[in-house]
Design a protein around this nucleic acid. Structure first.
Lengths: 210, 210
DNA sequence: TATAACAGCGTACACGTGTACGCTTAAATT
DNA sequence: AATTTAAGCGTACACGTGTACGCTGTTATA
């Protein structure tokens, strides 16, 4: 049981994953990739693909998992930076934008499959994004003493805005323009935060006067 | 030049458009439609397709135009209702949700092609949405006396939130759930409006004290 | 050392695709 | 009335697709 074999298998599995990831781009969606193309890019015979995935769909779901992992990495990194002090919103947006720059394709996958054509994919993507949202919701609730529903609405709106901005950022090559987009996004998140806090305060006053 | 011929041509052209629209659904994206399928659905021989569009892409762009038209219809309708009094945000969201219910497929097209695979499509969709955003921006600027940049950020955020909610609504069949989503969206838009107004006020004070 | 497991390959097949080409037939033009 | 125009059809082709099947060579097990 030395594992030479299993090791090799894992390696070509990664080659398939990377091949698919590489072929994703602005002009190429996952659903437009063919099994043959991916196998070829990975240096495999088409039929060997089946030794690793039963389907292109299965590969796709694996990629979504990969994307979820990246998202969690993002959260960890942002938390670390926040712990060192600074504006929470600014740091979060900046970290997110860096992620998009270095992992454009995997982020594109999330965006496309979110409103994509396969129910399984959509469900998987939505799950990842929901996890992300919930994590943020928790943080907001504790940090700002918000009611659960207010925190959720804020988190949900914030994630929507940030993901949308990320999608736009993917189409911008000019750095100055991207920075401007980031600034705008930060301001929009502040709008939302402000509104949420205000509702929360109003409710608190109402409770006190009862 | 009675136009019997041109009339007939226009009719089958519409049949092609409607055929494509009909085949769009949660499980079927435009890019996954084939020329042959659309022609068949329209009751045409595959090769006759070319008498009307040189490409599936050309048909697609026509559909995006159609969607833009629908969007403008929406704005008109919302304005009429608003003129009769009531909460602007509430009426807008409600009108939007009605549109989605009755024109799900065309709205899906917009959502999908926005982050889709064809540069031409993306550009066309972005143009339509930008128009929509600018219209809202104008309104906000005048109605709330906002600075141009603040109004734009609010409009942009609002449109993002509403479109995202629309996308979610497409996957919900339960009416009560959809209503809840609408309520949440309304609240989120109020957050944003609140934040924008607050920034605007702060700026005004700053100017006064100069 | 003999045997089983299994990753990877090549061949082969049926199927759906876009589209070139020429024909028919009815409307439009002369 | 004679001629031109053009919408729609059928045939035909080359191409890319997923995948079934059997073979080979190497690794793991007994």
């Amino acid at each position: 049981m030395s594992g030479v074999r299993a090791q090799q298998k894992e390696k070509t599995r990664r080659q398939l994953i990377n091949a698919a990831l590489k072929q994703l781009s602005a002009e190429r969606s996952f659903s437009s990739l063919s099994l043959r193309e991916v196998a070829k890019e990975a240096g495999l015979a088409p039929t060997s693909f089946y030794r690793h995935f039963s389907d292109m769909d299965e590969l796709g779901l694996t990629l979504v998992d990969e994307a979820g992992l990246t998202l969690r990495q993002l959260m960890r990194q942002a938390r670390q930076r926040i712990a060192k002090g600074g504006s929470v919103i600014q740091i979060s947006v900046q970290t997110f934008m860096e992620l998009i720059e270095s992992n454009g394709n995997i982020f594109r996958l999330l965006l496309r499959e979110r409103s994509g054509t396969s129910a399984a994919f959509r469900a998987a993507v939505i799950r990842e994004i929901r996890y992300f949202t919930m994590e943020l919701c928790d943080y907001l609730q504790k940090a700002n003493q918000l009611d659960a529903d207010v925190a959720y609405m804020q988190a949900n709106a914030a994630v929507t805005i940030v993901f949308s901005a990320g999608s736009d950022a993917l189409d911008i090559e000019d750095k100055a323009e991207r920075d401007q987009l980031a600034q705008q996004t930060i301001q929009q998140l502040r709008f939302i935060a402000r509104g949420a806090l205000e509702l929360s305060d109003r409710r608190k006053k109402l409770r006190r006067n009862r």
